[in-house]
């Protein structure tokens, strides 16, 4: 499905402030073309276990509220539930985060952003789907603008059910995620790299104006 690119993404000539003309090819300039690769852990198992332990106790959540679920994130970071004491913190940029919480439904437009945020995170990275909407469409199962099953678009490590899931349920979910990480079972990033084509074709099926590179990191 070839589409006409937006004007700002097309190859064009630009005149710089110093008067020199040069050609820009935005897609090539802004993004990298290299596809994700499977990243192996440390060679020595005990080192990898040690790292996994550290990863599990230092979950940095990307502060991206994709849907309703964002409303229960604030109680989590504030006195009542205080997730900080469990080693959970919020980071404002995807680069520094290693846990993407898809809080509720994803509209197609947000899916695009969520994919980019996910791809910009550094591996190992984890995804937690929050609420019914990420499991099977939830309330919006017949809406034309939401995705129904998050699993098709990015590898999800854990689902927390509820609409909304209470903060207590979220904490329980994060505790479960910690166990998965410690057991070395949370290898979503590698799964994404292995089944990259499948994920991409799913993503392209719902995002009709696909005008971004296949992989952006």
């Amino acid at each position: 499905m070839e589409q006409e690119l937006k004007p700002e993404l097309q190859i064009r000539k630009v005149k710089g402030p110093d008067g020199v003309e040069f050609e820009v090819e935005p897609l090539r300039d802004y993004y990298c073309e290299a596809l994700p690769t499977v990243q192996h852990g440390a060679y020595i198992q005990i080192v990898e276990d040690f790292f996994n332990w550290a990863r599990s106790h230092s979950l940095w959540i990307l502060g991206f509220g994709t849907g309703c679920g964002a409303i229960e994130m604030r109680p989590l970071m504030t006195p009542r539930f205080d997730a900080y004491r469990y080693g959970i913190q919020w980071r404002p940029t995807p680069r520094q985060a290693n846990l993407l919480v898809i809080s509720g439904y994803l509209s197609v437009k947000t899916l695009k952003r969520a994919i980019r945020a996910y791809e910009q995170m550094q591996s190992p990275k984890y995804v937690v789907g929050l609420g019914s909407c990420t499991i099977n469409g939830g309330m919006y199962w017949d809406s034309y603008n939401t995705i129904k099953r998050l699993d098709d678009y990015m590898p999800v490590d854990l689902y927390i059910v509820g609409c909304m899931p209470r903060p207590e349920a979220l904490l329980a979910g994060f505790e479960d995620l910690k166990k998965l990480i410690r057991a070395g079972k949370a290898e979503g990033a590698n799964q994404y790299a292995e089944k990259f084509d499948w994920y991409k074709s799913n993503q392209k099926r719902v995002i009709h104006d696909w005008d971004m590179p296949d992989y952006s990191w």
Binding site: N136, V156, L158, Y159, V161, A169, A172
Partner: peptide, 12 residues
């Protein structure tokens, strides 16, 4: 009860 966490979406 309100806590249910799974890693397989089909189990719900």
């Amino acid at each position: 009860a309100y806590t249910w966490v799974e890693n397989d979406p089909d189990l719900f």
